[in-house]
């Protein structure tokens, strides 16, 4: 993954548990400043080790830590230099999800090693959005749930997200919106 993910995780850990715990995570995983450069691509195993170590310090299972991190990631991205691109992608949940793949295509042009997922809005009602997720990475379901929760936070929506189906290699998530 790109180093930006590592920077986001570091910031989340700094926010939650402070610098001494993050220093432990770095020590446990052999991580240093050279592993935190946004524009560098690192092996996924590095990211996995960092998240696993962070989960242990947070007192969470890895899946729960992934979900928390997914939610945090959206907040981190919007406050970072990439904030204007997120604004450009959309100002409401439906528009944002519909435009995510277009935005990701441009990301890949600028960052050729990025392995971006695909999100398709396959059904929409006032209170429920059905989103189909495809990725060549596996095991990140809870991270995606966190991402969608983070998007709701960002776009002033409240609700819940659940994994509802696994058609083929895709995964379907339902976003239940509190719009009564």
């Amino acid at each position: 993954m790109y180093g930006m993910a590592h920077r986001a995780l570091r910031q989340m850990m700094l926010d939650r548990l402070g610098p001494s715990v993050w220093a432990k995570v770095e020590r446990e995983t052999g991580t240093g400043p050279a592993d935190l450069i946004s524009l560098c691509v690192y092996d996924d195993s590095k990211t996995i080790a960092l998240i696993s170590a962070s989960a242990a310090h947070l007192g969470m299972e890895v899946d729960e830590a992934l979900r928390v991190f997914g939610r945090y990631w959206v907040r981190f991205a919007e406050l970072s230099s990439f904030g204007p691109i997120m604004d450009f992608t959309g100002q409401d949940l439906v528009t944002f999800i519909n435009n995510l793949d277009r935005m990701h295509r441009s990301v890949v042009l600028a960052m050729p090693d990025a392995r971006v997922p695909s999100f398709t809005l396959i059904d929409e009602t006032r209170e429920r959005l059905l989103v189909r997720y495809r990725s060549d990475r596996t095991g990140l379901e809870t991270f995606v749930i966190g991402l969608l929760e983070g998007l709701m936070d960002r776009l002033n929506e409240t609700g819940t997200v659940e994994l509802v189906d696994r058609p083929g290699t895709a995964i379907d998530f339902a976003i239940h919106l509190d719009r009564s």
């Binding site: 996924d44 195993s45 890895v62 899946d63 992934l66 596996t138 095991g139 379901e141």
Partner: peptide, 8 residues
């Protein structure tokens, strides 16, 4: 699940 994330 997390270990599986290292695999395509």
């Amino acid at each position: 699940a997390f270990l599986a994330a290292a695999l395509p």
